[in-house]
Amino acid sequence: MAELIRLRDVSKDYASGPEIVRALRNVDLDVGAGELVAVVGASGSGKSTLMNILGCLDRPTSGSYHLAEVDVTRRAADERALVRNRMIGFVFQGFNLLARTTALDNVELPLVYRGVGRSERKRRAARALEAVGLSDRVLHTPAQLSGGQQQRVAIARALVTSPPLLLADEPTGNLDTKTSYDVLAVLQSLAREHGITVLIVTHEPEIAACTERIITVRDGRIERDERVDSPRDARQLALELGAS
């Protein structure tokens, strides 16, 4: 399987006053296309730093990062913006949708920065919303949507550019259990059916149990990297909860 993510000997230092804090220490990581991975770890373990580097929001102090066999280790701000726009979709704990902006306009935003024409944007945004089951909420603003619906809009926004990598930072942190499984089911299907690599940062074991691989970060190192033998099916879990 072709590696989508390849980190080699990546370290990240932060200056914290006079001291230098080493947030990541010589991390090696390979993630293949279509993998569904959970990243777990206590706060301060370095998992946020790892995700920022993977998301091209930050640059490593040393080491190298190849994304889809392209070296993106030390790119200027403009080029990192381009990489984020083309290669990476982001889903956040707080949804991070633009307020007073319709679901459709939120979803088409990445296409605006890609320079896609208006009618094409509308078409693709509508299709992405359909894919997450929100065809009937296209013109709703975030305030008019439930938490689960907002997160699905955010997923549609992350997917609208058809990126190979989706990074989800605590995507279910603000959601109840049933809705969490609903959202997780969407992420599972993206990996399984569309071959998108999905990385989920979570601290909930139940969520991690739905993924295929769990990476545990501690003190800036990858402490454990284990396969999940039989990932649980989020759709099934959601249905069970809905039935009870």
Binding site: A77, A81, R84, R86, N96, L97, L98, L109, Y113, T161
Partner: peptide, 16 residues
């Protein structure tokens, strides 16, 4: 600021 962060995350260049 947060809106700016969102826009940057999804691919807005500083110039945009």
């Amino acid at each position: 600021t947060r809106e700016i962060g969102i826009r940057m995350a999804i691919g807005a260049r500083p110039a945009d």
